[in-house]
Design a protein around this nucleic acid. Structure first.
Length: 438
DNA sequence: TCTGGGGTCCTAGGACCC
DNA sequence: TCTGGGGTCCTAGGACCC
């Protein structure tokens, strides 16, 4: 337990949706839902305007559509989110060297490593306000919720108390009175399954959890979890903020619009995924010994199989071959909704090939066919450029027609036009292709 | 036509070794 | 011949997080 509220947790509000509203003025003040737009998509983030209608993260897009049919449903632009995230993380690192990103939109900062002039609640409050103002500046207007406390647990609980655009500091010594009335579900690691187990044992609040002995908790939920719960219920949390965390695994998976039944198709898809995994391993200078596949059947039963090699690999041919072999052992009659490939047991080096032979990459000649079958094209929210009309984004698409709204944060809302999906004047926007150059 | 994608950590059982 | 532990590695599955 630290003497001051020197651990900071920051959470960008409705992150993906806020980036869309920032860049697309016509979406401001409106319900925006970012996630998978297909039949099996789920909501990744939604704006506060959409939450009013009961839309939540992780809800199926189908359900979200039923609750809020007039919302804008967008697939998301990861490049833009990464860029905004990078700006925020850079700002945080300028404040303290000890920054632990949890995702694109969340991080812990250890202010004890920041060398602030003072750590009393009042000084930390003005620091927090200033930080939030600077986040707004460096992101072009995004808001963040910030919490400060004597531990990671308390800082995270604090940032959640006044969302969106809030700042909460939990004064040292007041942690337990804050926690006691709260639901056990605020404890990190208590999800639906643990909450249900505890509820059956008559435990719903942290005060009630505090009354359960450590041995009892361990026997209820297992050793690691039990000890952790016992401590967190008492606001005992000495976990350090860790700046650099090693990657432990790299994986790619996909859920398909229609269940797969053809083994040849499954093998081709695994081969392609293996290629993406290998590419990412090589990009980060990694290789791994254990290759795994994940198969989700039509009824949502999820199977995994893995095999461990004597030495690490980053070869797409090797990963693909093992993945296909692992699939061969599984019964997939009835259909497969998800396939995935991963590599773990990572090392930051690749075993030298003693024989100097270069491995042949498997030809992926059936990929174009697969793409035409499983879809690619114009996705809602995607940025586009039109030779005459300039920059815009896909509003909707279907039946060979794509509807584009022409606007940017600079130009503001512009006209909406529809084009044939194969219109040559319509191009995918990237930083290398500006309207002027087309 | 309910239920994404990318991860982390934990558990439990079996093999194998000392 | 019987009876032990402990430790490590591997595999499969599950809970959880954003």
């Amino acid at each position: 337990m630290r003497p001051h509220a020197s651990v900071l947790h920051i959470d960008l509000d409705a992150f993906f949706a806020s980036v869309e509203q920032r860049d697309k003025p016509s979406l401001r003040g409106k319900p925006v839902i970012v996630g998978g737009v297909g039949g099996r998509g789920v909501v990744a983030t939604c704006s506060y305007e959409a939450r009013v209608f009961g839309v939540r993260s992780a809800m199926s897009t189908r359900e979200a559509r039923a609750k809020c049919p007039h919302a804008a449903f967008l697939t998301g632009r990861f490049g833009a989110y990464q860029e905004a995230s990078r700006a925020v993380m850079e700002l945080l690192r300028s404040v303290s060297p000890l920054v632990e990103p949890l995702s694109l939109d969340e991080a812990f900062v250890d202010l004890a490593a920041a060398d602030l002039p003072a750590y009393d609640v009042e000084s930390l409050t003005s620091f927090g306000h200033e930080l939030r103002a600077r986040v707004k500046e460096v992101t072009g207007g995004l808001t963040a919720s910030v919490g400060l406390g004597t531990s990671k647990f308390i800082a995270k609980v604090a940032s959640d108390l006044d969302k969106p655009d809030g700042l909460v500091i939990v004064a040292p010594g007041t942690e337990q009175e804050l926690l006691r009335p709260m639901s056990v579900t605020v404890i990190p690691g208590v999800g639906p399954a643990t909450a249900e187990r505890l509820r059956r044992a008559g435990v719903q609040t942290i005060a009630e959890l505090e009354a359960v002995s450590e041995d009892e908790l361990v026997s209820q939920v297992g050793s690691a979890h039990g000890h952790s719960l016992w401590h967190l219920a008492r606001a005992l949390d000495s976990r350090p903020v860790v700046a650099e965390r090693e990657t432990k695994s790299v994986s790619v998976e996909g859920t398909y619009e229609d269940d797969l039944t053809d083994r040849k198709v499954m093998e081709s898809l695994l081969t392609r995924q293996a290629g993406h995994v290998a590419e990412r391993l090589r990009k980060h200078g990694l290789s791994g010994r254990t290759v795994s596949i994940k198969v989700r059947l039509y009824d949502f039963t999820t199977l995994s199989r893995s095999a461990t090699l004597p030495s690490p690999t980053d070869s797409s041919a090797t990963i693909a071959r093992i993945a296909r072999t692992l699939l061969a052992d599984l019964d997939t009659t009835g259909g497969v909704r998800l396939l995935g490939v991963g590599v773990s047991g990572l090392a930051d080096w690749v075993q030298d090939d003693l024989f100097g032979a270069t491995e042949e990459e498997t030809p992926e000649d059936d990929i174009p066919q697969l793409e035409s079958r499983y879809g690619r094209g114009w996705w809602p929210g995607q940025d586009v450029v039109h030779a005459e009309m300039g920059r815009g984004w896909v509003w909707g698409s279907g039946k060979g027609v794509v509807t584009v709204r022409f606007e940017t944060a600079e130009t503001g809302p512009g006209p909406v036009r529809s084009y044939a999906a194969d219109d040559p004047a319509l191009g995918h926007y990237s930083s290398e292709v500006t309207p002027d150059e087309t």
